[in-house]
Design a protein around this nucleic acid. Structure first.
Lengths: 347, 347
DNA sequence: CTGTTAGCGCCTTCAT
DNA sequence: ATGAAGGCGCTAACAG
């Protein structure tokens, strides 16, 4: 009755050593396949370890200067389909190299971002991949990481910090292509949904929209821009709905809409249907991101696909370079976006 | 030039002690507000700590038997809106108690689940909340957690293991209500989409469907059940689309569909539109989960809402009990689901 | 091949 | 109010 299987404290190296009648060091060697251990002793040790349910204490290991082989991923939230694909791409590269990944989310709050990053550092992760939206606060956090020499890669925007790599998709080009597509099928009155007019310049997707109009000799119209006034960081289906309603109320509403993202586009779609406005016959709608549901809306949504999985994989590769100490100054990788035409903008 | 700001190794307690001319112990006391430290010394220590960018090494702390105040959350994937809400509910409770949360995902693979759980344990998290789908493998992992005395709470299903609490929503009741609703507006031929006929019994949502039919004196029909044959764990929009196509090919197709989740329902919606079949006039469709986009489909989708945020919060509270050692035998909390009628099943 | 010693960064305990 | 010693679990470096 003395050996209780459900013991409080996990077994240690010393416990295993005692049980198998060797020194702790020998157990360490056997467990880690380092140095010489006679086959016979190794077998005995392994048996004892299994019996005791021994698991090495990684944290103690870390104290001796060993890496935990863990990397942290900082995400704005996890609802976004973007996040899954990104994580999947990251893990595809990192896991074969023996790294574990931990995810922390920030609920889009700078304060939480700071705390999460700190928490990663406290837990001595080896590196960080940051995919939150850029804020001044966020940049400060990145600087702090850089100062602590923690390998970091930013996804989705420029890091704005020396020694921190970034991976992003060319949203400008994607938006340009989408709007050029709308123009090519005959539209001249094209609205932009998902950001307030006063915040528009911070958005590369807007810049692409504006450039496409300009190239076609179409003047930008302030009243064709609609979005949530105080939340420039994102746009939801509700935002898209409101914005579309607003545009449809105009005396001369647009005949085509480019939405900042698919969620906003889906909100716009709903607004159009609510007003009895047929898509694409009376109004064409295009989105951005190609979320999985975009192919299943009514009608299926024209959108722009960005290579999310590949961005994750690329970020992971850059991080591996940094971890190996191979990398020099900051690199920026920009990936191409692809227009996915569907029925919502059918000619 | 001797003090380089971007030093390799993080500052330690000893570094701060040296810089402020006191013993390491005093620094520890100052940093942790434990024991007596004169205000003057405290100020000096804090200044040195800041200058050195000192951060306590939590991992070393843990070695002395201290908790890291971190809990792990195991998710099947992170695309699901379910996941965000759940995490938000969990954090709402845990963060005020000083806990950090880390998320790991399993890509729906048992092997990854095992590895992720192991990784949590290796990093000495204080407790785990598991929200993956039940598999035999998964249950084994849970048993292993229980054996190691790691406080654990399961969300979304019965843990099947002693000393492990669970929180779930009453999917049976939710499905029952949804199907009863379909019957009440006159439907008798009601299909179920999202699972293959041979896997149906494992699904509480199916049981609720069957019970509602039975209560109304309607016989179950094998050919009205359609779903992916080899992936009973989930159903996507693609699965819903395929299944709906199949049902619409029947000589006498159903007049109403209850889909296992909103993704499948959205796939079904698309299939109906593709076939020129009007919803809800020719066929009614209901889903399950009330994902944010469900209110924005065409037509807006009738669905069943489960209190996800609250399930997360509840799970966190149960976990806190376990962490405090307050809790005794396993508890199971079941929450009510609510029917959300929208236009896709309008009379 | 195996054992001993020492120390990673921190905190508990016991002095001072 | 502060300091010194010792040890948490592990492994590098050096014996045997």
């Amino acid at each position: 009755m003395s050996t209780n299987r459900t013991n409080k404290k996990p077994a240690t190296l010393a416990d295993v050593a005692r049980k198998s009648g060797v020194a702790a060091m020998t157990v360490s060697r056997a467990i880690n396949n380092s140095g010489y251990v006679s086959p016979e002793v190794r077998k005995r040790v392994m048996a004892a370890a299994r019996a005791l349910q021994y698991r090495p204490n990684m944290l103690a290991r870390q104290l001796k200067g060993h890496s935990l082989k863990a990397i942290g991923i900082l995400l704005p939230d996890i609802a976004n389909p973007f996040s899954t694909e990104l994580v999947s791409g990251i893990r595809e590269v990192l896991v074969p190299h023996g790294y574990t990944t931990f995810i922390a989310t920030t609920d889009r709050s700078s304060e939480e971002e700071r705390a999460a990053l700190q928490s990663f550092v406290d837990h001595r992760i080896d590196g960080v991949i940051v995919a939150t939206r850029g804020t001044r606060f966020g940049t400060e956090s990145l600087q702090s990481l850089a100062k602590q020499n923690i390998p970091t890669v930013v996804v989705g925007r420029d890091s704005g910090v020396a020694r921190i790599d970034s991976v992003m998709a060319d949203h400008y080009q994607g938006a340009f292509d989408a709007v050029t597509h709308l123009i090519s099928i005959g539209h001249r009155r094209i609205g932009f949904i998902g950001i307030a007019h006063e915040d528009r310049t911070s958005l590369r997707r807007y810049a692409g929209y504006a450039a496409a109009l300009k190239q076609a000799g179409i003047a930008e119209k302030k009243e064709y821009i609609a979005g949530p006034p105080d939340a420039p960081a994102f746009a939801t289906q509700e935002d898209g709905f409101q914005a579309m309603m607003q545009l449809l109320d105009l005396p001369k509403p647009p005949t085509a809409i480019f939405a900042r993202n698919d969620f906003a586009a889906i909100g716009a779609l709903r607004a159009a249907h609510t007003r009895g406005c047929r898509v694409p016959q009376e109004i064409a709608i295009a989105g951005f991101d190609n979320i999985p549901l975009a192919a299943f809306t009514t009608p299926p949504l024209t959108t722009v696909e960005q290579p999310i999985h590949e961005q994750g994989a690329q970020a992971a590769r850059l991080l591996l370079d940094r971890l190996a100490g191979t990398a020099g100054r900051a690199r920026t990788v920009v990936m191409h976006c692809r227009l996915v035409p569907r029925e919502s903008t059918l000619k």
